[in-house]
C-alpha cells in the first residue's frame, strides 16, 4: 500500500471515530444527518458483498470492511437511541434532515445498471455503492446549509471524510504509475465527483466561516 492510500484509510477511520465517540460520550447529535448515515450503511453493505464470496485479499482489507459495515450500523443505532434520550435534538434533526434521498438511491441504481464492470449481482451492487457514496454526503451538506451554522462535530467529520476522498485520487495515480495496477475508471470518476462535492463545501466553508459568519451552501 502506498502512503496516500494509508493516509486516506486512516482519515476515513478517523471521521467515523470522531462521529462515533462524540455521539457516544456527549449524546450530542446536533447537525448530524440521519439520512446520510443510513446511506453509508447501504454503501458499505452493497460494496462489501465480496466478504460473502470468501475472496481473500488481506487481513487488513477484511477487518476494515467489517469495521466499516458494523460502525455505520452502530452510528444509526446510536442516532435512533437519541429518539428517547435526547428527544428534542432528535426531533430537530428529523425536521432539518429533509433532503429527498429517493432521487439519490434511484439515480445510483440507474447509473449502476448502466456503468459496471460486469453485469453480475455483486458487480452491479459494487457500482451502486460507489455511485451512492459519491453523493451520500448531500443530505448532510443540505442540512448544514439549512441550519446556516455548523457544529464543530459536523465540520470535523466532513473535513476528515473530504480528506479521505481527496487522498484516494493521488493513490489511484500512484497505483497506476508506480504499481502498474489497472486504472479503475468507475472508482476514479465517482471518486472525483465526490471530492468535488467536498471541495465545494470547503470553498464555501472557507469563505463564510474563516472570513466570518455562518455556513450556507447554494
Amino acid at each position: 500500500m502506498n502512503p496516500f492510500r494509508i493516509a486516506a484509510d486512516l482519515s476515513h477511520l478517523a471521521s467515523i471515530l470522531i462521529l462515533l465517540r462524540t455521539i457516544q460520550t456527549t449524546n450530542c447529535i446536533d447537525g448530524v444527518s440521519l439520512k446520510t448515515q443510513v446511506l453509508y450503511v447501504l454503501v458499505f453493505v452493497s460494496r462489501y458483498l465480496d466478504l460473502l464470496t470468501l475472496h481473500w485479499i488481506s487481513l487488513y482489507n477484511t477487518l476494515m470492511k467489517v469495521f466499516f459495515i458494523s460502525s455505520s450500523i452502530y452510528i444509526v443505532v446510536l442516532l435512533q437511541r437519541a429518539k428517547v434520550s435526547n428527544a428534542v435534538a432528535y426531533k430537530e434533526m428529523i425536521l432539518k434532515d429533509s433532503f429527498k434521498i429517493g432521487y439519490l438511491l434511484g439515480g445510483s441504481a440507474v447509473l449502476a445498471l448502466l456503468f459496471n464492470e460486469r453485469f453480475t449481482f455483486i458487480d452491479v451492487a459494487w457500482s451502486f455503492s460507489v455511485w451512492l457514496e459519491s453523493i451520500a454526503i448531500l443530505p448532510q451538506l443540505f442540512m448544514l446549509s439549512k441550519s446556516g451554522k455548523a457544529q464543530s462535530l459536523t465540520i470535523h467529520y466532513i473535513f476528515a471524510l473530504g480528506l479521505y476522498r481527496a487522498l484516494y485520487i493521488p493513490n489511484w495515480i500512484w497505483r497506476w504509475l508506480v504499481e502498474n495496477k489497472n486504472f479503475q475508471k468507475l472508482a476514479f470518476v465517482t471518486g472525483v465527483i465526490q471530492t468535488l462535492l467536498y471541495s465545494d463545501f470547503f470553498y464555501i466553508y472557507y469563505k463564510k466561516v474563516i472570513k466570518g459568519g455562518g455556513v450556507s451552501l447554494p
Binding site: R47, D50, H55, T120, I122, W126, Y168
Partner: peptide, 10 residues
C-alpha cells in the same frame, strides 16, 4: 472478461 474484478480498495 470472465474473471471477477478485484477490489482491493475500501
Amino acid at each position: 472478461s470472465n474473471t471477477a474484478p478485484v477490489h482491493d480498495e475500501l
